[in-house]
Design a binder for these strands. Structure first.
Lengths: 353, 353
DNA sequence: TTGAAAGCGCTACCAG
DNA sequence: CTGGTAGCGCTTTCAA
């Protein structure tokens, strides 16, 4: 435990470099000497070069920092996040690199501490509130960054693997509009950060959280083109990206006289919650009320959810590759992936026309 | 980026210690000087002390290493693992500690490399093949360890948070035996590591993977007590702990003349696969064939699965606490948590008697 | 309150 | 093939 390279070197009367070579560059010494060194190490309880010292010296840690929201559980619970992380982990482990999961606390000061203490070679930012002060620190670190959201947020140096959020949402909106829906509600998370679940009056152009902002604007684009006045659209904030929040949010659109005939959400998880809310009220999805999701998580298909399919594992994998083998050409560090509209049973024509 | 403590010190004509203090011990210098230092840092693009160097000096990294099997996806896919990790992550982040996810490759040499390069203050071993050579290295590291499986594997120094696997399995076996089942199959993963999915002839006392070994022995205990000869029990290996493997394994018990009337599994995930296999064949769970799981993951309830409920998030949380605030008393570092038998619809009396 | 000195444990260069 | 030297960037006594 207290054993170091030096211990072994002294024991055998060789130099530290030689012991170091025994571990890091086996071809630099005779196999015979090497095995004597390894044997001595074994005997003295030396478990190999100290990783921290080695990292300091080499200037490389073999770890990617993954910033997760405040709500750490999400990384392990949200199906989309899970798929993304899986892709990232695959890319990383193929290069013998580990993932350092960093929980970004709400408190700015603590967040900065977490970020500055993180020994990593690169950062992957995924689903992080993009106004958090700790992000500035990350940029200052000067290590490679890949983001999955606002492609502009970190300038051209940062890698980006994402989708055209706005265009994708627009396709959902067009689908709904074409089905004749005019009484529409949108359930979106983090319209208001730190807010409660319920209707909000917010200007789509002023939403802080990039992903939600773009998707809401995409919906608006579609309705504007279809001649549905934006004032008619009910905007409901979900305090979190959870199924329960989806159900709670939906209640605000369903329990009123001018009930919405279509509810668009910013994620499949929220949409599943909306479907729960319909079921409780005896309403039929796709018939009484149309519902759309976003992501196409595995649960979407059995639920018959109409949604946008986006590559999830792939997105994580590409992010990892960008981080570990950054292409020279900056243009190749900005990847916008294709999505597709998947129409299933939860959307149908508006029968109340 | 190339800026170091020294850069700032030189710029301001103060010593390195003072700059260091500005970051690590603000009370050691005048607020005025401190803010001058911080301003200079900002100006020179210095993003604070290098985490690696700091860790080396302090001898502390603020990270827990989590060893995951070869199959990294599992950590993000298996519902039980997800819950466990969530608990662990919660405990860690409450202490501003991060999780370093380490993928343990099948290849021994690569595995040792991954472990020795991991800069962590502690290791949490969860669902790791307990014969892997890299484990020896971990012990040699001399850092705190918590394991979730074989309480003896690492000696009394290692922490342990687990359940009485054998007794828990025995309760499932007794339940099945009491229902009159005599033609029984057991679907277990890693009976044979690296093996294929299918029937195996294995001595329960000789299984290498601890958890599976204990659970299979628990089943045997129950049947022995009920007078069901062990030779009558069909043992089926699942190559992995996956739903598909569960279905594939079940086929071997179902597609034969002397079809099993009960199938016990070592995890809910496998059991869900078994239920899939029943459905495909038009067999009714709990009526034509009884099925049991293990863990009580969220999906178990909607599936009506009879299973053993064990605390999952709790287990992870306790592991984290043990690692970060180890109790003086070694006895308090070995925690055996209670479980309960949850009887649902997938088990019922044997109608073929 | 500030600063000088002494490493933390290792690796990489270069000369032998 | 081997070993001396020179740091990697930081923190922490201890003395001023």
């Amino acid at each position: 435990m207290a054993a170091t390279l030096q211990t072994i070197a002294d024991e055998l009367g060789v130099s530290r470099s030689t012991v170091s070579n025994a571990y890091s560059r086996p071809d630099q010494l005779s196999p015979e000497l090497r095995s004597r060194i390894l044997a001595a190490a074994e005997r003295l309880g030396y478990s190999g070069p100290n990783p921290t010292a080695r990292s300091l010296r080499r200037g490389k840690v073999n770890a990617i920092g993954v910033l997760l929201t405040d709500n750490l559980s999400m990384a392990f619970t949200d199906p989309y996040a899970v798929a993304y992380l899986r892709g990232l982990a695959e890319a990383a482990s193929a290069r013998e690199t580990s993932l350092l999961l960093l929980n970004l606390p709400k408190d700015e000061e603590a967040g900065r501490r977490v970020v500055s203490n993180a020994a990593v070679d690169a950062f992957c930012l995924y689903c992080v509130p993009d106004w958090h002060g700790a992000l500035e620190l990350i940029r200052a670190r000067g290590v490679p960054i890949v983001i999955g959201e606002d492609p502009e947020a970190f300038g051209p140096d940062a890698g980006y693997v994402g989708i055209d959020e706005r265009a994708a949402a627009r396709r959902l909106g067009e689908h709904i509009a074409q089905l004749g829906h005019r009484d529409v509600a949108i359930v979106a998370h983090w319209i208001v950060h730190g807010g409660v679940t319920g209707p909000v009056d917010a200007d789509p152009d002023a939403l802080r959280y990039y992903v939600t902002g773009q998707r809401v604007r995409g919906f608006r684009d579609a309705f504007a083109a279809a001649g549905v006045p934006w004032e008619r659209v009910l905007l409901i904030n979900a305090a979190d990206n959870g199924r329960d929040e989806g159900a709670a949010a939906a209640a605000h659109a369903l329990d009123r006289l001018d009930r919405a005939t279509a509810i668009l959400t910013t994620s499949d998880v929220l949409a599943l919650g909306v479907l729960d809310a319909l079921r409780v009220r005896g309403l039929r999805p796709g018939r009484d009320v149309s519902v759309t999701g976003f992501d196409d998580i595995p649960e979407a298909e059995p639920a018959g959810l109409t949604t946008i399919r986006q590559p999830s594992v792939e997105r994580g994998r590409l992010a990892g590759e960008l981080l570990l083998d950054p292409p020279e050409d900056p243009a190749r560090r900005h990847l916008t992936l294709p999505v597709s509209l998947v129409v299933r049973a939860t959307t149908g024509p508006n029968h109340q026309i």
